[in-house]
């Protein structure tokens, strides 16, 4: 049976991990490569690197970093954050990223999904959707969640699938950072209308939250950042817990 995936997300700025990472035994806690290796060895099923560096000249750092990560880890990884063109996506994929994640740039220019999927295949394209419940419906937000769009989340999800996205990373801004659990209602709505895997994001605070989201929705994966970085949940513990609760999960021996 296909396993549900657990995905730590690392925020990167200028080639360094941003969020204070509270891990013992890392040579350089700010090194995304060290952290990535640690997560891969602990049983993370995939990794997401989100680059929050704004400037173009720093982008080169990201491509260099991707190449080092690809050399050091042998699980799949996604790179996202400010990818605006096929050229930028191609650079990251050719330097070793398995997938790229698009967010605001896909809303601005939806054909970008088609262009990348056309050249590298749908399995390379993750569309990240930031969503918030406002005025009685789930809407899409862009620019790091600052700007509301006219798009309804389910409509946008259907559209990105039609354009060739291979996966949707759905972050509920209502629950992000709250540690109160994943927002299952919007996940269910989106899963119902698309045929591609959906990754749950935003709100993970405990092992139970992962269990609930896997039990109550058909998400393919769950993503979290701070609970892993601060050691509040360890991946081996989480996976053991999910396995004991009969969630189909990959455990490393």
């Amino acid at each position: 049976m296909l396993k549900k995936r657990i995905i730590p997300c690392l925020d990167i700025k200028d080639g360094k991990t941003v969020k204070g990472v509270n891990f013992e035994g890392l040579i350089d806690a700010g090194s995304p490569v060290e952290l990535a290796k640690r997560y891969a060895d602990e049983g993370a099923d995939e990794l997401v690197f989100l680059d929050i560096t704004a400037t173009i000249e720093k982008r080169k750092t990201l491509a260099d970093l991707v190449e080092v990560i690809a050399k050091e880890i042998n699980i799949p990884f996604t790179v996202g954050g400010g990818i605006n063109s096929l050229e930028e996506a191609a650079t990251l994929i050719l330097r070793g990223a398995d997938k790229v994640s698009l967010n605001s740039s896909a809303v601005k220019r939806p054909e970008l999904i088609q262009e990348i999927a056309g050249q590298f295949g749908s399995q390379c394209v993750v569309v990240a959707i930031d969503t918030k419940f406002t005025n009685g419906e789930w809407k899409v937000f862009v620019s790091g969640g600052r700007i509301e769009t006219d798009l309804k989340t389910v409509d946008w999800a259907k559209k990105v699938e039609a354009l060739g996205a291979g996966e949707i990373l759905l972050t509920s801004m209502n629950s992000d950072g709250t540690k109160n659990g994943f927002e299952k209602s919007v996940l269910k709505e989106v899963i119902q209308v698309v045929n591609i895997p959906v990754i749950a994001s935003g709100g993970a605070g405990s092992k139970e939250h992962f269990k609930e989201v896997f039990e109550e929705t058909n998400v393919s994966a769950a993503l979290a950042a701070s609970v892993f970085h601060f050691g509040e949940i360890s991946i081996p513990d989480l996976k053991m817990y999910l396995k004991m609760n009969n969630i189909s999960i990959r455990t490393t021996l």
């Binding site: 396993k3 996966e167 058909n218 021996l253």
Partner: peptide, 26 residues
């Protein structure tokens, strides 16, 4: 209907017979 294509992610691989390629694999 609950299964999505492509088949993407980690899955179990059964190894019914021994073969040099499968040595030391559970």
């Amino acid at each position: 209907p609950e299964l999505k294509v492509p088949h993407m992610g980690w899955n179990e691989v059964l190894i019914p017979n021994s073969h040099p390629l499968c040595e030391n694999l559970p």
